[in-house]
């Protein structure tokens, strides 16, 4: 239609442009730019890389604090990330790497084993909680379970230090106490975060696999012995 008009009257298009109806359209165009510049205080495009990394690290560290002091907070659930779990998982696997059952082919399966246990276990627990009718999302649950490994990673560091000193009955007793405490802590913290999303009467069914998961990891840490 417009083309037909344009072919009949060559300058009709120009006169159309200057019609005053276009003015509100300009206003409309300027509105999004204003709103985006208001949001721009939050833009991360032109900040130094250091700021970006530090902000992410701060977010991860903030979540660590939440795990160490597990009060009913939604922060760990609301903005989940998998950086912290990855960091903790790799740290734990590397610390467990040195000692191996078989001293000849050192550690090869060990790293993979820890890695697989942690991620596979988390996925199983998450699927289980979904199947039992939990309202938590997949990655939220992975995030919580991954962050709650932190006490166990700390226990691993302590065990390493204790094992540097001696490897007698006393050191075993110390390690047992440390690992048991951190195992309890991990289970308690993850339960505090996850239990709210579950049906009230089924909490025990959700907690059992979590308990088993941290128990296996804790037991691996306890039986760890560095290679001579």
């Amino acid at each position: 239609m417009a083309e037909a008009d344009g072919s009949s009257r060559p300058f009709a298009g120009l006169s159309d442009v200057s019609i005053s109806e276009d003015i509100p359209v300009e206003g409309d165009i300027s509105m999004p730019t204003i709103s985006s510049s208001q949001d721009d205080g939050f833009s991360t495009l032109d900040e130094p890389v250091k700021d970006t990394v530090l902000r992410d690290l701060k977010a991860v560290g903030n979540k660590f604090v939440h795990v160490l002091y597990p009060k009913k907070s939604k922060a760990l659930l609301r903005d989940w990330d998998l950086w912290g779990p990855l960091l903790l998982c790799v740290t734990l696997a590397l610390l467990l790497q040195g000692g191996s059952v078989d001293s000849k082919d050192d550690g090869g399966p060990q790293f993979a084993e820890v890695f697989v246990i942690i991620w596979f276990g988390s996925v199983i627990i998450t699927l289980n909680s979904k199947l039992l009718g939990g309202t938590i999302s997949f990655f939220q649950s992975l995030c919580v379970l991954g962050y709650c490994i932190m006490p166990l990673t700390v226990a691993m560091v302590v065990c390493r230090i204790v094992l540097l000193g001696s490897s007698g009955t006393v050191s075993f007793a110390v390690r047992l106490v440390v690992v048991s405490a951190s195992f309890g802590w991990s289970t308690f913290a993850s339960t505090a975060f996850l239990a709210d999303s579950q049906p009230q009467n089924r909490k025990a069914l959700v907690v059992y696999p979590v308990f088993l998961f941290y128990f296996v990891i804790g037991w691996m840490i306890l039986t760890f012995a560095p290679a001579q």
């Binding site: 699927l127 289980n128 979904k130 199947l131 039992l132 009718g133 009467n201 089924r202 025990a204 069914l205």
Partner: peptide
Amino acid sequence: NIDILRPYFDVEPVQV
């Protein structure tokens, strides 16, 4: 599949 499996996980702790 997840939805299909859900009825089989419909238990109470007491039942288990």
